[in-house]
C-alpha cells in the first residue's frame, strides 16, 4: 500500500471534498481517501501496482481539481469603503439608534 499526498488548493470547502472523494474512490486500486478542505490536501492510500500517482493526478485534473491549481478570484477594487454599495445602501450610524434601544428593551422584557 502506498500513500500519495497532494495539495489541492481548489478544495477550500466541503462540497469540493465530496467531489474529490467521488473522483478518486471510483479509481481501481484506491483503498482510502482522506480529503481535508481545511488543509486543502488529499491523502490517497492506493495499491501502486494497480494505480500510480500519475493516474491520481490525472483523475483530479479531470474532476476540476488539478493539484497545485488555484481558483481565479474576482478583481476587487482597493480602498473603496466609503463608496461601496454596502455603505450606499445602509447608512452607517455612530450614535445610538432609538430602534436599537427599543428592541433591546424588548429583549430584556422577553
Amino acid at each position: 500500500m502506498e500513500k500519495t499526498v497532494l495539495d489541492v488548493p481548489k478544495m477550500y470547502a466541503d462540497h469540493h471534498v465530496e467531489a474529490v472523494r467521488k473522483a478518486l474512490l471510483q479509481l481501481d486500486g484506491v483503498e482510502k481517501v482522506i480529503a481535508s478542505s481545511a488543509f486543502k490536501r488529499v491523502v490517497v492510500a492506493h495499491d501502486p501496482e494497480r494505480l500510480d500517482a500519475g493516474a491520481i493526478h490525472k483523475a483530479l485534473q479531470q474532476a476540476g481539481y488539478a493539484p497545485g491549481e488555484e481558483w481565479e478570484l474576482p478583481e476587487i477594487p482597493e480602498g473603496k469603503d466609503d463608496n461601496s454599495a454596502w455603505f450606499q445602501t445602509l447608512q452607517r450610524v455612530t450614535s445610538t439608534d432609538m430602534q436599537d434601544l427599543e428592541m433591546s428593551g424588548d429583549f430584556r422584557k422577553y
Binding site: Y12, A13, D14, S36, S37, A38, F39, K40, Q99, D100, M103, S104, D106, F107, Y110
Partner: peptide
C-alpha cells in the same frame, strides 16, 4: 438583522475541521 439578534435565539456549532468556506 436586528430582529434576529434580539428575537431569534440561534447559534451554529461547527463540528470537525473548519475550512475557508465555513
Amino acid at each position: 438583522l436586528l430582529y434576529n439578534k434580539f428575537r431569534c435565539f440561534a447559534f451554529a456549532i461547527a463540528l470537525g475541521e473548519v475550512d475557508d468556506l465555513k
